[in-house]
Nucleic acid binder design. Structure first.
Lengths: 138, 138
DNA sequence: ACTTGACCTTACATTGACTGGAAGCTTTAG
DNA sequence: CTAAAGCTTCCAGTCAATGTAAGGTCAAGT
């Protein structure tokens, strides 16, 4: 099947599929006219990539997961470890964003938000302490 | 003062400061030897940038914030609006990550994680439902 | 005077994961 | 026959820096 049909089945843009081929994640055959020709197995791999990318795995992690998927004798522990590491990273990112959110919230709460020029948000950005919530640099 | 000293005072790498100049966020003078020469006012702007970037504002948002900071007659409402929009974006990102986390957690919980090859995580990535938590595509 | 090393300069390449666009094939529908 | 859709490759751009290379300048020590 042509790239357009594969794209539709995998819910990925054709452009992205070509990119995945560029970086060696998938190697479809070619038809006589030079068009890429995707087998059901190829589409399956693309779906795997779509799902793992949407779960936040990086391309390199997806590469590893795919190779584990291809390896009939892999240990499930290896896969579980990758997923656990990913959860840790997601947790760290969430914590960082929550800290940012709390600082931004303090700034917004302290700003009267009217037509007058004096603004506690800009004062804080300029380095004048606003009286609550320490920076917690990201 | 030279870029190294400015970098230290603003807690930014010299490289980043040159980049900020490239994109027009700051315009230091030049000494006779061609070296950039930063005034206290320049350092102040760099500190403003360091702080606003660390709070998660994009470069373009920082540009706007700086111009508001320069504008003596700005309304604090304008600044407050930018900060509120940023909080919204941060909230959306947090929600997305929490959803990912929950899906990943279900997968990890379902994986026995031993030396056997069968793995619910890979099964899920391959499209076989694992029995809980719908995708919630990011 | 000479050398070493720290610091400065510019310019270009790379990152991650695509996305957009140009220029030119092939195929399909009318 | 023609127009549109779909395919091809290749190059550029995104964001916010960061890495590297090749070279100029300055201050200290011998």
């Amino acid at each position: 099947m042509n790239i357009g049909a594969a794209a539709e089945r995998a819910n990925l843009p054709s452009k992205t599929i070509r990119y995945y081929e560029d970086i060696g994640l998938i190697k479809p055959g070619r038809a006589d006219n030079g068009y890429r020709d995707y087998s059901d197995e190829d589409v399956h791999r693309l779906q795997f990539l779509q799902r793992s990318r949407s779960l936040g795995f990086t391309i390199e992690e997806c590469r590893t997961l795919l190779s584990l998927y291809d390896d009939e004798s892999r240990a499930s522990a290896d896969v579980k470890e990758i997923a656990r590491e990913k959860i840790k990273k997601v947790d760290a990112k969430i914590a960082e964003l929550q800290s940012l959110r709390s600082t931004l919230n303090v700034l917004v709460k302290n700003c009267h938000g009217d037509q007058r020029p004096d603004c506690p948000i800009l004062d804080d950005l300029a380095g004048h302490k606003v009286g609550a919530a320490e920076p917690q640099s990201a």
